[in-house]
Design a binder for these strands. Structure first.
Length: 807
RNA sequence: GCCCGGGUGGCGGAAAUGGUAGACGCGCAGGACUUAAAAUCCUGUUCCAGCAAUGGAGUAUGGGUUCAAUUCCCAUCCCGGGCACCA
């Protein structure tokens, strides 16, 4: 028998799979239950696939293969998220036009992906930068536009000075650009948004979603729902209504001043002549401070008095109105009531500017004002709920009750109301970059903003040669007269195209709808088809997308649902995140120079060994630091497996092997289902070791080959053929097991004396307590320890333990 | 600061519901085969003492509950991730 030749075997089967179209899916098949197994698609920049990609894709594919063997009709597509910065920056760097470099890189990635041995249906591929795809991205935009969910507005937005484009809030991390790490600045620009915030409440509903708790929590925090009240503070001179939002209206009697954000629209009106200079200087100063600095909690608070006073509606008291940059203009009403005694930020501010303090909440232990003041001197503001004091008729109430009562009382005078706020803001989707789907809108001097009619889609992205990003807040497309100048679709007169392109997250917010329909030319997707195939049954990808892609895609799908285009609200029923693969503790990337290429390992050991090694590292969700030292173990295992299958045995291994196999079938299935491939592989090793020693018959060999098929598809295919079975193993079904044979008739259990193990006994699983105790006492070492005292208690947990308590 | 995870041999990691801690693999040590090496096979491998039987300690640290704790409770430390002036 020859040693296993991995490279030859893998080449042979990859060729055969392709020739026989083994992985093409009949979407109309109604005999089998469908299973949509989806992995987040890659950006085809210049990077080749590294070990991190394999760590993600190979187990995802093993899962898909497992589901196919379980009898499902599995759709497992892959595509390329080819618009956007990674591709464009690569093109700029290499001087090759993205149209060309994308084609090359996609081609190269396909070769690499095929070497892994996936069951991808290559006929269903999508490439987001191709016109037959982005035509429908533009169509999506138009549907939102029609419903008023897409609009242009002038606003302070995040600007990345390095990438020279605006960014969505989700793409700013710690005040830095998510792509390049440059510090983000603010710019006042007119930009396109999707009305994401209007979906905040819907996005908070995770009903029926099998998602990691952590991911749901992250989205909940990002959406940031808060329930409170809006209160009107009247200003007499000049007359104005100042509206504030608070979750702590119970502390209203402790409000000793108010604060507006520097950008608040009433600032100019409320600033008195005497204060004008100070205020203007202050606003000028805050503009220069970056967002990171401004949002830092450590930074000392600054502010300036406007000269005006507002009336606290609950007690008629006049309080000074200040301006400070610790108040954010885009949240709530951009103005707050300040209660220094019960809010950390207000406390720090009031101390600095020597503003008044009044204690209005006592803790639940009924401490009075004196005790609370002493507490605050030591610990700062008391921010918990408590019992109201110094609060007129409300004194003595709990915070929770007072919030309702005070709001209701003021509401009757139209001075307050209940209000819910969200941190989630609208999705800024326009980008001042070349490599994206053009926004299908035309600006006409006569008709104004006019959407491009659906029949005129796609608005083709022109192949311009100079697409370097610009500093003036305009897209490089604005330089292309040919693109820019057009006729107004409404009046036929001269008009100009919108030259911004769409955020690539728009492209990826709907691609899962396109896979089953990727060849349709008259619509983005067929309703019957997507209603049949979606939601995605299993979605696999990185946790870094929790508050970006995974929010955008849910939003887009919900919009499609609300517009009647699809019947399902949520796009992804079940979600699993792979862990991160690091190299010496750092995230693997080409730019860091620590990306490990899988090619060398695949060449030496084969794809099967390499993918099993990645799976053997630990649970899929954990990731880990890359280290190749253990790969020989998997290589040896494959060799052993190969020998076992090819060897003729005198014995069928008997009861031991039969039970071992049944246990293995059970364990492999349940572990694969929770992505614990590491223990699946370990269990296979154990069984192979056992069978190699004791012998095995052909029928059991066939079961074993089917069990390893999802993990080592090439090896399995070859063994399947050797055993004389019909191509292909992936359609041979998943072996069944006999529950009775997974339970041993006898077990070895420990015997404890006073909690310490003093021996073990082999005993029937269903043995009676009497028998167990008797056998335990018969153990020499146990008997020795029992003699040290008198037995006061005897414990027997069948199949687990015998215990004695001796005194 | 707040909210989640997590801390187990030299290493990666196993251990539903509390019940013989360390499966499986790597590495290491000894042995077999070989002129030799590699490959392969066998044996051992948590630490300490002992030739061994066995005894003691042991799942970040300190307490607690229990006949019995990696698992449950309290406190502390460390690491990773997320959020971070959201009123």
């Amino acid at each position: 028998m020859a040693a296993y030749n991995a490279s030859q075997t893998e080449e042979k089967w990859q060729k055969k799979w392709e020739e026989t179209e083994l992985h093409s899916v009949d979407l109309s098949d109604s005999k089998k239950k469908k299973f949509y197994n989806l992995v987040m698609f890659p950006y085809p920049s210049g990077d080749r696939l590294h070990v991190g990609h394999w760590y993600n894709y190979a187990p995802a594919d093993s899962y898909g293969r497992y589901m196919r063997m379980k009898g499902f009709n599995v759709l497992e597509p892959i595509g390329f998220d080819s618009f956007g910065l990674p591709a464009e920056n690569y093109a700029i760097k290499t001087g090759v036009h993205p149209t060309k470099s994308i084609a090359q890189n996609v081609e190269h990635m396909i070769v690499q992906l095929k070497r892994i041995g996936m069951i991808y249906d290559w006929d269903k591929t999508v490439v987001t930068s191709s016109p037959d795809y982005y035509k429908w991205t533009q169509w999506m935009f138009l549907q939102l536009y029609k419903k008023g969910l897409a609009f242009k507005k002038f606003a302070p937005v995040n600007w990345c000075p390095n990438d020279k484009t605006v960014l969505a809030n989700e793409q700013v991390q710690d005040g830095k650009c998510d792509r390049c790490g440059a510090e983000v600045t603010k710019r006042d620009l007119s930009q396109w948004f999707f009305n994401l915030s209007s979906y905040a409440e819907k996005l908070l509903d995770f009903e029926g979603l099998d998602w990691p708790e952590k991911t749901k929590t992250m989205q909940k925090n990002w959406i940031g729902k808060s329930v409170g009240s809006e209160i009107v503070f009247k200003v007499e001179e000049p007359a104005a209504d100042l509206i504030v939002y608070t979750t702590r209206i119970d502390t209203l009697f402790g409000c000793t001043y108010m604060v507006l954000a520097p950008e608040h629209p009433l600032v100019a009106l409320l600033t008195t002549k005497e204060q004008k200079k100070n205020v203007e200087q202050y606003i000028e100063k805050t503009k220069k401070i970056s967002d990171i600095e401004r949002s830092s909690e450590v930074r000392e608070k600054t502010g300036v008095f406007t000269g005006s006073y507002a009336i606290n509606p609950v007690n008629g008291e006049k309080v000074p109105v200040w301006i400070a940059d610790y108040v954010l203009v885009h949240y709530g009403t951009g103005a707050v009531m300040a209660v220094p005694t019960h809010d950390d930020r207000d406390y720090a501010f009031a101390k600095k500017y020597k503003l008044n303090l009044r204690t209005v909440i006592a803790d639940k232990k009924q401490h009075g004002e004196k005790e609370m003041e002493k507490y605050m001197e030591e610990n700062g503001a008391y921010c918990n709920d408590g019992i109201l004091i110094n609060s007129g008729d409300y004194s003595g109430m709990t915070s929770a009750d007072a919030r309702v009562k005070i709001t209701e009382a003021l509401a009757s005078k139209k001075l307050a109301d209940f209000k819910t706020n969200y941190k989630l803001r609208d999705w800024l989707l326009s980008r001042q970059r070349y490599w994206g789907a053009p926004i299908p809108v035309v600006n006409c001097a006569k008709c104004g903003e006019v959407p491009v009619p659906e029949k005129d889609l796609p608005v083709m992205l022109p192949e311009i040669t100079d697409f370097t990003p610009r500093n003036d807040g305009k897209s490089p497309l604005s330089k292309s007269e040919e693109f820019k100048n057009c006729k107004c679709p409404k009046c036929g007169g001269d008009a100009e195209r919108e030259t911004d392109t769409m955020d690539t997250f728009v492209c990826s917010s709907w691609y899962y709808l396109r896979y089953p329909n990727n060849k349709l030319t008259d619509k983005p997707f067929d309703k019957d088809m997507v209603d049949k195939w979606l939601p995605v049954d299993m979605y696999i990808g990185g946790p870094e997308h929790a508050c970006m892609h995974l929010i955008y895609a849910r939003f887009m799908n919900m919009v499609m649902h609300d517009l009647g285009f699809v019947d399902f609200k949520e796009p992804f029923k079940k979600l699993v995140h792979q862990g991160m693969i690091t190299k010496n503790g750092a995230k693997m990337s080409k730019s860091k120079g620590n990306a490990v290429s899988p090619d060398m390992f695949v060449e030496k050991y084969g794809s099967d060994v390499f993918r099993m090694y990645l799976m053997f590292m630990g649970p899929f969700q954990d990731g880990g630091d890359w280290n190749d030292t253990g790969i020989t173990g998997i290589s040896r295992f494959v060799e052993k497996f190969w020998t076992l299958i090819n060897q003729k045995f005198e014995s069928d291994g008997g009861e031991n092997v039969k039970r071992g196999l049944n246990k293995l079938i059970k364990k492999a299935g349940s572990d694969i289902e929770i992505f614990h491939f590491n223990t699946t592989v370990a269990a296979m090793m154990e069984f192979v070791n056992l069978a190699s020693k004791e012998g095995i018959d052909d029928a059991s060999k066939k079961d074993l080959v089917r069990l390893i098929a999802p993990l080592a598809p090439h090896l399995a295919e070859e063994c399947w053929e050797i055993l004389g079975e019909k191509y292909s193993v992936v359609d041979s079904g998943w072996p069944k097991y006999d529950e009775k044979l997974t339970i041993d008739s006898t077990v070895t259990i420990g015997v404890q004396v006073n909690g310490k193990v003093r021996g073990d006994i082999e005993i029937a699983v269903d043995a009676s307590k009497e028998v167990a105790i008797e056998m335990a006492k018969a153990n020499e070492n146990v008997a020795k320890h029992l003699k040290e005292g008198v037995i006061v208690k005897e414990i027997y947990v069948p199949g687990k333990i015998v215990g004695f308590v001796v005194k």
